[in-house]
């Protein structure tokens, strides 16, 4: 960082302030700030928890989670599939690489390790709590899963990849967890369809509550508290999938050069 860099940065800031003044006076175009809600957003807000109009409602008070997993659930499903493809390609690039025990120095000092041992369960607990409140308060599967993945990063830096491998956090197990999450999401998406076929009633894919012409529904209340119906399962499985998938990709990324080069040269293939 040099003085000239700071001077250039300050002039860019001045440019931003002046440009926004010109915009504010109407010199470039209208100011991009609204004061009223769009009609689509108004519909989502009015219907996200509305027991009177149950055939349009998700029965979850949290608008964002209701849109993510109920109103636009199919979008999210395929976006999860894109993420799965990205992680699978990361794993495929290091196909056959094995963790060799005893290659590194074994992590950081005892003080850091003890602190991490106390902190890691707290981070995982925070992630689980964020996941399990997703339909009542801000939070959900993506947020909880990303929080749990931070615990993996912390463990990877403090301990070493050796220690994680010794404690059973291996590629295959994480891949299995990731697939369990995805299969869970897929099963939740078609659960009511299967029940409908068995009973002989109409049902839709990604159905949560009663819809037009279909009386089937996930249970919406548990001892008086809204459960969001299928949103509970989607959040749970998505947290599973995201945390295991990101952890897997991070662990594979941190494989040491010796291990990867060995496989590239053709030695040590499983």
């Amino acid at each position: 960082m040099k003085v000239t860099d700071l001077v250039v940065a300050a002039s860019i800031v001045a440019l931003a302030l002046l440009l926004s003044y010109a915009m504010f006076l109407g010199g470039i175009g209208p100011v991009p700030v609204r004061s009223e809600l769009r009609t689509l957003a108004l519909n989502y807000i009015l219907l996200t928890y509305n027991p009177a109009k149950i055939i349009y409602s998700a029965l979850a008070p949290e608008g964002v989670t209701a849109i993510v997993w109920d109103y636009r659930g199919l979008d999210t499903y395929f976006e999860t599939a894109v993420m799965f493809l990205a992680i699978i390609s990361v794993v495929a690039l290091t196909h056959g690489c094995k963790v060799r025990i005893g290659l590194g120095k074994g992590g950081m000092s005892l003080i850091v390790k003890t602190t991490t041992r106390i902190l890691m369960p707290l981070i995982v607990l925070a992630g689980v709590s964020i996941t399990m409140h997703g339909w009542l308060t801000p939070g959900g599967g993506f947020q909880g899963g990303a929080t749990i993945a931070v615990a993996t990063v912390l463990a990877l830096v403090t301990y070493s990849i050796d220690t994680l491998a010794k404690h059973g956090i291996r590629k295959k197990i994480l891949l299995a967890m990731r697939s369990t999450g995805l299969i869970g999401i897929a099963l939740t998406a078609v659960a009511l369809l299967i029940i409908g076929l068995a009973v002989g009633v109409n049902a839709y894919i990604f159905q949560n509550q009663e819809r037009m012409g279909s009386p089937l529904a996930f249970p919406a209340y548990f001892s008086g508290t809204p459960t969001g119906g299928s949103l509970l399962f989607y959040n749970l499985f998505e947290a599973f999938a995201v945390s295991a998938g990101l952890s897997l990709a991070i662990i594979v990324t941190s494989l040491r050069e010796e291990e990867v080069k060995e496989t590239l040269r053709g030695e040590g293939v499983e």
């Binding site: 957003a41 996200t48 964002v64 849109i67 990205a86 993506f142």
Partner: peptide, 14 residues
């Protein structure tokens, strides 16, 4: 508006 937030949420993780 909740809709942009719901779309960005998945975009960040992907």
């Amino acid at each position: 508006d909740p809709l942009p937030q719901a779309l960005v949420l998945t975009a960040i993780v992907i």
